[in-house]
Simulated assay, not measured.
Amino acid sequence: MEYRAIVMGCSAGGFDALETVLRKIDRDFQIPIAVVQHVSPDFQNNIACLLNSRVDINIKEAEEKEKLCRGNVYIAPRDYHLLVEDDETFSLSMEPHVNFSRPSVDPLFESAADVYRESLIGIILTGSNHDGSEGLKRIKKLGGMSIVQNPDTAYAFEMPRAAIETAGADYILELDEVSEFLNGIVKGR
């Protein structure tokens, strides 16, 4: 199976989890990754800039109508839902909060599932609510792969546990296993 996109969601403890995963992604990684990290609208730092200074892969904040390109990690801007359109570009939405959050994981996962279907990988990392579980369920329903961080070792277990209970998981991995697994997929292992 050739995967064309990866979507990833996290909340409490998410910045450290993202750094752990993205730090070990190969520099020549060829699948675009879109990320929703719950952040307060008052948060003044740019997560993409912070992560970009700590990892080798290119990380940027997603922009309206931007095409998903290989080798990039896109972070949802604060206070906007991040969606994937049929033409494989992003759209930013100010629609109401979903699961008490904007950005929310579910809108990204559901829109990406509709576009990429079986060539999508959805990943739920640490977090303290159930956001992402319905989106991961849609990814699986349309033939995509689901990966969930082991809730027993996550900083906050609620998001991973809800994802497993609602959607099931093709793989339950320790945080430090996620990047190795993704690198293996790209290399055909």
Rank of each mutant, 00 (worst) to 15 (best):
Glu174Ser: 07
Val55Arg: 05
Val115Tyr: 02
Pro32Leu: 09
Tyr155Lys: 12
Cys69Val: 07
Ile147Gly: 00
Gly168Trp: 00
Gly132Ser: 05
Tyr155His: 08
Val178Ala: 04
Val35Ile: 15
Ala163Ile: 06
Asn46Ser: 12
Arg117His: 01
Val98Trp: 08
Pro151Trp: 02
Arg78Thr: 15
His81Gln: 15
Ala167Gln: 04
Tyr171Asn: 06
Asp170Tyr: 05
Ala169Thr: 03
Lys187Trp: 11
Gln149Tyr: 05
Cys10Ala: 12
Ser111Glu: 09
Tyr171Leu: 09
Ala5His: 12
Gly184Thr: 11
Lys137Val: 12
Ala163Ser: 14
Arg70Leu: 01
Glu19Gly: 01
Cys69Glu: 13
Val105Tyr: 08
Asn58Gly: 01
Leu142Phe: 03
Glu158His: 15
Gly122Tyr: 09
Gly127Glu: 10
Ser11His: 11
Ile33Gly: 02
Leu82Phe: 01
Gly9Arg: 12
Pro77Phe: 13
Asp86Gly: 11
Pro41Asn: 08
Ile47Val: 15
Ser53Arg: 10
Ala169Cys: 00
Phe15Asp: 01
Asp114Trp: 01
Ala76Glu: 14
Val148Thr: 08
Val55Ser: 03
Asn52Ser: 09
Asn52Met: 00
Glu2Ala: 12
Arg189Met: 13
Ala163Phe: 04
Pro151Ser: 03
Gly168Met: 00
Ala62Ser: 07
Ala17Lys: 06
Arg161Ala: 11
Leu51Asn: 09
Gly132His: 05
Asp106Ala: 08
Ile6His: 03
Arg4Val: 10
Val98Thr: 09
Ser133Lys: 12
Lys137Tyr: 12
Gly135Trp: 11
Thr166Cys: 10
Thr126His: 13
Val55Phe: 03
His81Trp: 13
